[in-house]
């Protein structure tokens, strides 16, 4: 049953994604490939919407993916229910884990095994996010969905790279501009996309 699967998939994502919003992206990427509920390109759009609306990134992503999945199979009502169920699935393990940790807070904070586990978990989580980022970059710039096809089918999009360079400079190096909220850069990129017909539509 679709809703049970949605709950289970997001339950796993909530349980294993560690270190904030972007950490859910590799799990969603893998979910897209395995279930076919949404495409990797749609995932990139969802990240943009989740970044530009209020609320925690991971929660926004879950609601959006749940909606899209439910909508594609059962229409608008299915979408609404899917959004709510995916979100509850995502936060359920968090709530349980925190309620348990809160009762043994002092011990958990100073436990050397917990420290040691996170010594390994942090770089692994970063590796997963970087890999998910790479696959979104491949889709966005080269329109291929896995790295093997990159070498056989290299269609290059220089206008996208120019925009990328501008946004990179704006978010990292230009003083004052780099302090702006991400929504500013997202709106700027949308405007550039429309003016220069970056989607080719």
């Amino acid at each position: 049953m679709l809703y049970l699967r949605l709950f289970w998939e997001f339950f796993k994502t909530g349980l294993f994604s560690i270190g904030g919003g972007m950490a859910t992206v590799p799990f969603l990427q893998e979910m897209a490939v395995r279930t076919g509920w949404f495409t990797s390109a749609e995932l990139a759009d969802m990240i943009a919407v989740a970044e530009s609306t209020p609320g925690p990134l991971g929660v926004n992503m879950a609601t959006y993916v749940g909606y899209t999945t439910g909508y594609s199979q059962l229409g608008i009502f299915g979408g609404l229910l899917g959004g709510v169920i995916a979100t509850i699935g995502l936060i359920f393990p968090s709530i349980v884990v925190i309620l348990i940790i809160a009762s043994v807070l002092a011990k958990f904070r100073n436990n050397r095994f917990v420290d040691a586990a996170f010594y390994g978990l942090r770089p692994a989580s970063l590796g997963l996010i970087a890999a998910a980022g790479l696959s979104i970059i491949l889709i966005c710039f080269f329109r291929v969905d896995d790295i093997y096809r990159l070498f056989s089918d290299l269609s290059f999009a220089w206008r996208l790279l120019v925009l990328a360079a501008v946004v990179l400079a704006g978010t990292r190096w230009i003083p004052k501009v780099k302090k702006l909220h991400p929504i500013f850069f997202i709106l700027f990129s949308a405007a550039v996309g429309i003016i220069f017909r970056l989607g080719g539509a």
Partner: peptide
Amino acid sequence: AWVQNAFAGIRVCVCILIINAVVSL
């Protein structure tokens, strides 16, 4: 058409936002 073009631009921005998140972590 304009929605599709807007999202083509937005995806570029998302790539950069992910790169920035990786660098800060």
